[in-house]
Nucleic acid binder design. Structure first.
Lengths: 243, 243
DNA sequence: CAGTGGTCTAGACCACGGG
DNA sequence: CCGTGGTCTAGACCACTGG
């Protein structure tokens, strides 16, 4: 099966590390090379193989660690909330506001949101973390009529979902979304703390208030594929539905 | 920006190959090493960087070529047809039946399809190609009451969508689906002609007949991420909808 | 058969992060 | 400062593909 040295080493290491909890430190390149009696290139190839399979995370100057990766379910049935989704995966969420400014709504945003182009709108740029590791970055467009004092509310909570529930009396839900896996541009990679060309999700979503159907905000976010295992699902359950 | 040799070479090559049509042959490792006056490891790293960004495709014993990658839109508004979707991307589709047998419907299939467990059902295993490159593999479960003679119909056409339209008088549409990006198991990778651990999409979908709402079949397919750029979208247009 | 990418050695120097 | 992973050389042999 694995006729090469580095694959045999990789298979050996897989069996060892699958037992360990996420974030555990494992052997580095030099140690693997010494333990298996191979050159550093072979040891390196083995660890890169594990990295490619998203089983380990390697950081220069620090070491090699078993991967932390969370499941992130995007569905109309799930609330569009970073903090809730991350906590559901037993990890710690955090979101940091990078910019929040009120601007005239651009036409490409006004169209989906059903507002007048040029009407006042909050442009919110944020980064989100899983266990303090950068995982998500993007922009939300919130019409001012939804919540005039968004900037003030962000001082009290970093969850947009929570703010809209508590300060705007809304119940957000994903009304429409689109997702694709891309290769990160240099700019996107910089925000995500990854490298240009690394795989990243682009998730666009339009969110509405459940009871009223009023459109609340438009979201445009990048997620690191090595940190977030995205699962995308249409609403409802797979099965016979009423006519 | 790119302080290393291999990144500079990679950037240089990116500018050259973005002008070329897909499938064009480009320089190999030895040529790149000679042209840029570096060792083979640096040349190799540069070409691997392009491969990681899905810009080139490398085959041992053959050479390095600019990538062919098609857009594959999964949406309730798009027909669930491999051949239609691939042709829409200006490529040649082909599907090969590996197995087609009539079996009692397993419970996990009967549930979503709203049939009795154990009722007769076609279990259809197929591989699909883009421009003769393996790209997709999976299973479809078609209740026998939808089309008793599925095996016969497959002799005339390799498109399940077309068969259902012409022989069963149905208009298939995706009623529900779920998608996630996984690392291929050894078995899946073998069917896709890729390597274990390579990224692959798992797309499950439940398809119905548009006018009647009758559930037609359940699909469970793997797609090579380096061949298919999957875009997943909910139905409808992003914008204000009628109440 | 010649040419391709895949693997591997035995070195070397470097950039980075933490104590 | 030391250890980490990142880069790189100059070789070598191999497996695979195509003509």
């Amino acid at each position: 099966m694995a006729a090469t040295k580095f694959r045999e080493i990789a298979e050996h290491l897989v069996r060892e590390i699958t037992l360990l909890p996420p974030g555990s430190r494992i052997e580095g390149e030099h140690e693997v090379a010494a333990r298996f009696g191979v050159g550093r290139a072979a040891a390196r190839a083995a660890l890169q193989e594990l990295e490619r399979r998203l089983l380990v995370c390697r950081v220069r100057g620090v070491g090699t660690f078993t991967a932390r990766r969370i499941d992130y379910l995007v569905s109309p049935d799930q609330p569009p909330s970073w903090s809730r989704t991350v906590r559901a995966a037993h990890s710690r969420p955090r979101t940091v506001v990078r910019r929040c400014e009120t601007v005239p709504m651009p036409p490409e945003v006004a169209g989906p949101l059903g507002r007048e182009p040029g009407s006042p709108c909050h442009r919110l740029q944020r980064r989100s973390f899983v266990d303090e590791l950068p995982a998500c970055w993007g922009t939300e467009w919130v019409p001012a009529d939804v919540l005039p004092e968004l900037g003030v509310a962000l001082g009290a909570s970093d969850s947009l979902d929570r703010i809209l529930r508590e300060s705007a009396g809304a119940t957000p839900r994903r009304a429409w979304w689109r997702a694709a896996l891309e290769c990160a541009s240099a700019e996107t990679a910089a925000e995500l703390g990854s490298r240009a060309g690394d795989p990243a999700w682009l998730v666009e979503s339009l969110n509405e208030d459940v009871p009223s159907g009023r459109l609340l905000y438009l979201s445009h976010r990048w997620l690191r594929a090595d940190t977030v295992r995205l699962v995308l699902e249409t609403g409802g359950t797979p099965g016979p539905r009423p006519a």
